[in-house]
Nucleic acid binder design. Structure first.
Lengths: 156, 156
DNA sequence: GTGCTTGCAAACGTTTTGCAGACTC
DNA sequence: GAGTCTGCAAAACGTTTGCAAGCAC
């Protein structure tokens, strides 16, 4: 569960981590070892809750404080590198802005379907037309019932 | 701000409060004075946060405990009379199930547009077709930017 | 050297819980 | 009378803050 600690994390397709580091510097942010760990963890998977992210990083870097993770997420979000989503009743989840996408979350079983942006095209157009409103579909989950749960409790 | 306390609240179309009381009893719930106050307040307006609802009821019935309001909301939701929505980053808001509707909430200024169900018709159809997913559009707010805020900060 | 970043610990605001007593049915 | 509902107080939960020391630039 500790892997090879503090190596280049997130190995898929080039090295997105270094690109992120560059963007932090461009935006005037400093690059500390702990901030790098936060970025590395975010590059590894989607949908980290702040708490899970903290635990995952502490497995590699035991002396990182939870408040540091929270402050980094806040700062990275201000810099535009990170966005958060609300996937239902639990805490917010964080992801790299480059991987932002919408969600369908089942209220019964908690299943989480990543939604293609095109799913929201109609809603986006209607909201714009009727209200002049520009939606950001990745910032919220669309709650409802998944196919499996609907089959189990058809008359909900 | 205190109106005429403990009168029939929510006067549109008959007496919805008594209908609600009846539904609680049908569902096996008991009707206490405090539960009636919760229902009456919910019938008066939409989008109560639990805290605001508690304060409003305490203005009439000073000895009602906050935990009683929370437990009533939970119970009424289980009975299907009440639903809650997440309108952004703040606490959840509660409303009578009969008045449930979707929302567009501006991330910049917090403005809240009540959304006609038809706004979600396209999304509902697509989610159903692609994922077999049945959305519940009133349970979440669609976040984004309203027309006024877009005009102020066009290049967001 | 400047000032952003950090750990620690405490505070925060909202919601949940345990319990004994009060109430509805 | 049986079982639900209640107030009170304390705990839980996830997150934020103040401070002094540490580090990037």
């Amino acid at each position: 569960m500790a892997e090879k600690a503090s190596r280049r994390a997130g190995d898929r397709g080039g090295d997105p981590l270094e690109a992120l580091v560059g963007r932090v510097r461009e935006a005037g942010g400093r690059m500390t070892a702990h901030r790098r760990e936060v970025l590395a963890a975010l590059a590894e998977r989607h949908h980290w809750s702040a708490e899970a992210l903290t635990e995952a990083i502490q497995a590699r870097v035991p002396d990182i404080a939870a408040s540091t993770v929270y402050r980094n997420l806040e700062e990275l979000e201000r810099l535009g590198l990170v966005v958060h989503s609300h996937l239902g009743h639990g805490p917010a989840t964080y992801q790299l802005a480059s991987g932002a996408h919408g969600h369908l979350v089942c209220e019964a079983c908690g299943a989480d379907f990543e939604a293609d942006e095109s799913l929201f095209a109609g809603l986006a157009a209607e909201a714009e037309r009727r209200h002049g409103f520009e939606i950001r579909p990745y910032h919220f989950a669309v709650l409802g019932y998944c196919a499996a749960c609907r089959a189990e409790a058809p008359g909900r």
